[in-house]
Amino acid sequence: MKIVFKLVGLLVLGFGGVTLLSADELWFEGKTQELAVEEGADIMLSVSSEDGDIRVVGEDRGSIEVTLSDFKADDPKRNRAAIMFTEDNGFVRVKLNLVGKLRKTDIVIRVPQRISMRLNSVDGDLRVDDVVGELDVSAVDGDVVLQEVEGGIVANSVDGDIRIILSDTGFKSPISMVTVDGHVHLVTPSNFHADFSASTIDGTFKSDLEYRVKGGGKNFWGDGVNMNGQFGEGGPPLSMKTIDGSIFVKEK
């Protein structure tokens, strides 16, 4: 099905130095800019930030709305920001392009609930609420919090905690949670089934859910654990790893 974008705000400017070949650009005039998409679009959203938090909220909506906390329309020296988008054989790519000081702004994005995302933050936290789709998120010196999410998930952090609260609709796709210096928290529905691995060098593994150990045990090079196990009847792979931190699994 062909996907049609409709521009909200009707602002498309050609400032040099911020271009993406074969992509259209929707430039910001104020703190908030919106890009409307056709219902049912297959969307991949990419966002990167430095020294700022990223929050994404899934809603029953037909557009992507981005708010930048530090954007000042009346500042002639402000740097530019644009929503860049392209379609390739029915697959839509949307990228937030921040230049200069706006790379350090806090970002709030409201999206359709069914969307895939690639989010990266340096010196900032990442939070995603109420989204169904593939998530690839990473933070350096920041926490990762994913709440009421469903889909394949890769969550990484350096010097930060990772917390994932799964939706009640079930665990159907692989999940990887890896942090170097932080804790790993997973909150699951009651009917949770997974084949898991848990590894920590300096920390503990605690689970409110019953599980069966299928291999491994205490880490021979530290005080942590390195085990394989099964929740319920087993299911998609779940990987939980930290070097300096503990792993917690809880039931809703």
Rank of each mutant, 00 (worst) to 15 (best):
D244Q: 06
V184K: 08
S207A: 01
N191S: 14
I247V: 09
T188K: 04
F205I: 05
V249M: 10
G234A: 05
D223G: 15
E233F: 08
N219Y: 08
V178I: 12
G235R: 06
G203Y: 00
G224W: 01
W221V: 14
H185R: 12
F192S: 06
S190V: 13
G182C: 07
V213E: 11
V178M: 03
M177V: 10
P189H: 09
N226S: 14
F248D: 07
G222P: 03
V225S: 00
V184Q: 06
V225P: 05
D202Q: 11
M240R: 05
A198S: 12
V225E: 06
G229H: 07
Y211R: 02
I201Q: 07
S207R: 10
S246V: 01
L238W: 03
I201D: 10
N228G: 12
G224V: 06
P189N: 13
F248P: 00
F220V: 15
G182P: 00
S197W: 06
H183G: 13
G229L: 08
F192H: 07
P237A: 14
G232T: 09
G229R: 08
G234W: 02
I247M: 08
D223T: 15
P237I: 07
Q230N: 02
G216W: 13
F192A: 05
S207N: 01
Q230H: 04
G182M: 08
G203N: 00
M227H: 00
T242I: 09
S246Q: 01
M227I: 15
K241W: 08
K214D: 12
T200A: 04
V178D: 13
K214A: 09
M240L: 15
G245K: 00
K218V: 13
K214V: 11
D223N: 11
G235P: 05
F248L: 10
F220L: 15
F231T: 05
I247T: 03
W221Q: 13
S190D: 14
H193G: 07
D195P: 00
V180W: 01
T200W: 09
D195H: 13
V213K: 12
I247C: 05
G232Y: 00
T200P: 05
S239D: 06
G229D: 06
T179R: 02
P189R: 05
S199Y: 03
G245E: 04
S190T: 14
T188C: 11
K241V: 10
Q230S: 13
G217Y: 13
T204Y: 11
M240Q: 09
L209N: 01
S246N: 10
A198C: 10
G222A: 08
G182N: 08
F192M: 06
S199K: 15
F196P: 00
V187P: 01
G234P: 09
D223I: 01
M177T: 05
H193N: 15
G216K: 03
F220I: 12
G235Q: 09
N226V: 05
D244V: 04
N226R: 10
N226H: 09
G232M: 02
S239I: 14
F196R: 05
T188A: 14
D208I: 02
L238P: 01
L238H: 04
V213G: 02
H183D: 14
S246W: 03
V213T: 13
L186K: 02
E233G: 14
A198D: 04
A194H: 07
L238R: 01
G235K: 04
T204W: 02
V187R: 15
H193D: 15
E233N: 11
T188D: 11
I247H: 01
S207G: 01
G216I: 10
V213Y: 00
F231Y: 14
